[in-house]
């Protein structure tokens, strides 16, 4: 969905800005097009057009779309929210859908991709306690990719420690897909900071997992993470000498 979708969104943006210039389609009309879409395909195009408008006023509708039970439209809405970045964070956090786990998974994916550390609390809770595995997977991965430099210096160590603790805990989960997501998160967390100690803790846990892991796919992911991190930790060591 990704390379293809991104390419088509870029195309769509070009097309849509052209259209906006020529026919001055207003945001109201773009939103109306979503409300009036009479087929799943029409809905997807309408959402792509709204996403491409890159307007903060589109945020409430894009968040609503996450709960429409149309995966194509939801992915387009996530793309739109991610492009809006920081501006979408507060609304996403406030409007997290407590009932519809499908919608919640997409919102968490958007938050994870925006990577704003204001989402840390929500991601920690979702990763550890949500009842829906898809939500937990998205949040678990997201914990590894947060952009820590947006936090004040004194909060970074504390935030990273909380993410690390949570990821280590989830790496014991009975569900292979959650352990897999925890490995992805641990690798990302370790390769996004310059603490040799954190890298050491992650490499230790990956070593343990390689001994214990029964699932072949997750084992392969552990080896993949070890490989990438050894390259990273060699570089850290070389820099500290």
């Amino acid at each position: 969905m990704f390379t293809f979708c991104h390419a088509s969104i870029v195309c769509f943006q070009a097309l849509s800005s052209l259209l906006t210039a020529v026919t001055t389609i207003s945001l109201t009309e773009l939103i109306l097009a979503i409300e009036q879409a009479d087929s799943p395909v029409a809905l997807i195009s309408a959402v792509r057009a709204l996403s491409a408008a890159r307007s903060p006023d589109a945020i409430p509708m894009l968040i609503r779309v996450l709960g429409f039970n149309n995966p194509g439209a939801a992915v387009a809405a996530v793309d739109g929210l991610v492009q809006l970045g920081e501006e979408a964070v507060e609304p996403l956090l406030e409007q997290l859908d407590g009932y519809n786990y499908g919608a919640r998974a997409y919102a968490i994916r958007a938050l994870a991709a925006i990577a704003d550390p204001r989402a840390l609390g929500v991601l920690l809770e979702a990763a550890e306690t949500d009842f829906a595995p898809s939500v937990r997977r998205a949040a678990t991965k997201g914990l590894g990719f947060l952009d820590w430099h947006k936090l004040p210096d004194e909060a970074i160590t504390h935030g990273q420690a909380a993410a690390l603790k949570s990821l280590l805990y989830i790496s014991h989960d009975p569900d292979w897909a959650l352990r897999y997501a925890a490995v992805v998160g641990l690798q990302a967390l370790a390769s996004r900071n310059d603490s040799a100690e954190l890298v050491r803790v992650v490499l230790n846990r990956l070593g343990e997992l390689l001994q214990l892991e029964v699932d072949a796919a997750t084992r392969a992911r552990v080896r993949f993470a070890q490989r990438s991190l050894h390259i990273w930790s060699d570089r850290l060591l070389a820099a500290s000498r």
Binding site: A105, P133, A216, A220
Partner: peptide, 24 residues
Amino acid sequence: IATSATENSFKLFALKGLLERQVQ
């Protein structure tokens, strides 16, 4: 598989089957 129009969970589980075969 990764670009097909279905939910991520289904795609993830299908790719797991591919990965297991490849590793084997």
